[in-house]
Design a binder for these strands. Structure first.
Length: 411
DNA sequence: ATTAGGG
DNA sequence: CCCTAAT
C-alpha cells in the first residue's frame, strides 16, 4: 500500500520533470493575475481580492511567485532585454508565443534562480492538506495543478499554453472586478493565513515521510514546525564547522541555514528537553534548505544566508505597510508573511528601509538608468508603480531617520 | 517581546 | 542580513 503510493508518486514526478516549461509553468499565470490585481487595487481601499482568497492555496507555491515577478515585469512594460521583446502588451505583443516569452525570461537574470522541474519536486501547500495529506499529498497537488493543463488538449502543449496565456491576459487586463471585493476583517485574514501556512513540511513527503508526520502533528501556528530543534548550536560550534570544511558550498548553505532557523523563533515553544536530533532534518527545514538561494560562492561567506526578495514579496510588504503602517512589522509579518518562515519582522523592516533608499535613488537616476541600462548592469529597477507607492507611503508614514530626505522631494 | 539604528 | 541598544 505504502509502496504503491510511493511508486505512483515517483512516476508522477517523473512525468512532471518531462513536462515542457511552457506546460507546467502555466498554472502560475492565473495566480499572477490575482497578485497583480491585488497590487493594482488601491491600497487604502479593500485590496484583498476574492480571487486571492480563492486561490490562496496556489499562491503559496514559491514557483508561482517566481513567475509572478516576470509577469509583473510585463505589466510594467519592462524590457525583456535578452529576448528582444520590447513589451508584452505592445502591438506586436499579441503575437508572441508563450514559449518565446519564457525564453526571454529565462535569459533574463531577473529572479530566475531556480530550475523549474526542481520546483515541482517540492510542493508546499496549505496546512489543511497536512492532516489528510500525509500519505498522498504530492499526488494530489501535482495532479491538480497539472491535470488542468493537460486536459484541454493533451496532444498539443503549445496550444494549451497559448490559450492559458490569453486567459491570464484577459484576466489581468480587466482590473474592474477587483475593486468591489469584500474587505476581509482582520480575523479573516488571520484565518486565511493560518490555514495558509505554506512553509509546512510538505516539501517532500516522498523523501521524509515519517518526519513530516512527526512534526506536523504539533503544527498549529507557524512556529511549531521547529519543535524538533531543541537547542541552538552555539556560535562557536557553527563557526567551527564552517572553518573545518571550507571546501564545499554544502557548508556554505547548510550551516547558515540552520542558524537562520534559530533566529526569529528563539525560545517560544522550545522545551527544555534536550535530545539531539540534528541528523533529523524536518521537512520544513529541508524545504528551507532546498530553497536557499544559490549564488556565487564568494557571496557565501559574507552574508551568512540570504534570500532574494521577489517582486511579489515586495508588493506584499508594501501592501502590508499601507494597511498597518510603518513600524508594525510584527503584525505585518504575522498577517501577510505567516507563510514565510524566513522573513522575520526585522527582515521586513530592513527591506522597507532598503526600498525607501532605492526608490528615492531610482527617482533621481531614472533617466540615467534607462540610458545606461545595458543588460550587463545587474541593477534591476523596481517597477515604477511600486516605486510610486513606496514613495507615497514614505510621505504618509515617515520612516525615522530617512523621512527627511523624502519630504522635500517631489516626484 | 519588539523596534530602531548601525554595521 | 546580523547585532545591539532601547523600550
Amino acid at each position: 500500500m505504502e509502496t504503491d503510493r510511493k511508486s505512483h508518486l515517483i512516476k508522477k514526478l517523473g512525468d512532471v520533470k518531462c513536462q515542457r516549461v511552457d506546460e507546467y509553468v502555466v498554472p502560475g499565470l492565473e495566480d499572477e493575475a490575482t497578485e497583480i490585481e491585488h497590487f493594482l487595487a488601491e491600497p487604502k481601499t479593500g485590496h484583498v481580492s476574492v480571487d486571492e482568497i480563492l486561490c490562496f492555496e496556489k499562491e503559496n507555491l514559491e514557483r508561482h511567485l517566481k513567475m509572478e515577478d516576470y509577469l509583473c515585469a510585463f505589466d510594467y512594460g519592462w524590457k525583456i532585454s535578452s529576448g528582444g521583446l520590447d513589451c508584452i502588451h505592445g502591438q506586436g505583443g499579441e503575437d508572441l508565443k508563450l514559449e518565446e516569452v519564457l525564453d526571454g525570461l529565462l535569459d533574463d537574470d531577473f529572479l530566475l534562480d531556480t530550475e523549474f522541474p526542481e520546483k515541482f519536486s517540492e510542493p508546499d501547500v496549505g496546512p489543511r492538506e497536512v492532516s489528510s495529506l500525509e500519505s498522498n499529498s504530492a499526488c494530489g497537488i501535482l495532479e491538480s495543478s497539472i491535470a488542468t493543463i493537460r486536459e484541454p488538449n493533451s496532444k498539443n502543449g503549445k496550444r494549451v499554453g497559448f490559450d492559458l496565456r490569453h486567459t491570464f491576459r484577459s484576466k489581468y487586463r480587466s482590473r474592474g472586478p477587483v475593486t468591489d471585493t469584500v474587505r476581509p476583517t482582520r480575523e479573516h485574514v488571520q484565518d486565511l493565513d493560518v490555514s495558509n501556512n505554506d512553509e509546512k513540511p510538505l516539501a517532500s513527503p516522498i523523501l521524509s515521510n515519517q518526519k513530516v508526520k512527526s512534526s506536523v502533528k504539533v503544527t498549529k501556528g507557524d512556529t511549531l514546525l521547529r519543535q524538533k530543534r531543541q537547542r541552538k548550536p552555539t556560535r562557536r560550534y557553527i563557526e567551527e564547522l564552517s572553518r573545518n570544511s571550507t571546501t564545499e558550498n554544502i557548508k556554505c548553505r547548510k550551516v547558515p541555514s540552520e542558524s537562520r532557523l534559530w533566529r526569529g523563533r528563539p525560545k517560544k515553544i522550545v522545551p527544555k528537553l534536550e535530545f539531539e536530533s540534528d541528523s533529523e532534518l524536518s521537512a520544513s527545514e529541508f524545504e528551507d534548505e532546498h530553497k536557499r538561494t544559490k549564488r556565487s560562492k564568494t557571496a557565501c561567506d559574507r552574508r551568512k544566508h540570504q534570500r532574494t526578495w521577489t517582486l511579489a514579496e515586495v508588493i506584499k510588504l508594501v501592501d502590508g505597510i499601507a494597511q498597518y503602517g510603518v513600524g508594525r512589522w510584527t503584525d505585518i509579518k504575522k498577517l501577510l508573511f505567516a507563510s514565510s518562515a524566513y522573513r522575520t519582522p526585522i527582515d521586513l523592516r530592513d527591506k522597507w528601509r532598503n526600498l525607501l533608499r532605492s526608490s528615492s535613488a531610482q527617482i533621481d537616476n531614472q533617466r540615467e538608468l534607462q540610458v545606461v541600462n545595458k543588460p550587463k548592469h545587474p541593477v534591476r529597477p523596481l517597477p515604477k508603480p511600486v516605486v510610486r507607492r513606496i514613495l507615497e507611503l514614505a510621505t504618509i508614514h515617515p520612516y525615522p531617520k530617512l523621512s527627511s530626505s523624502f519630504l522635500h522631494r517631489n516626484y
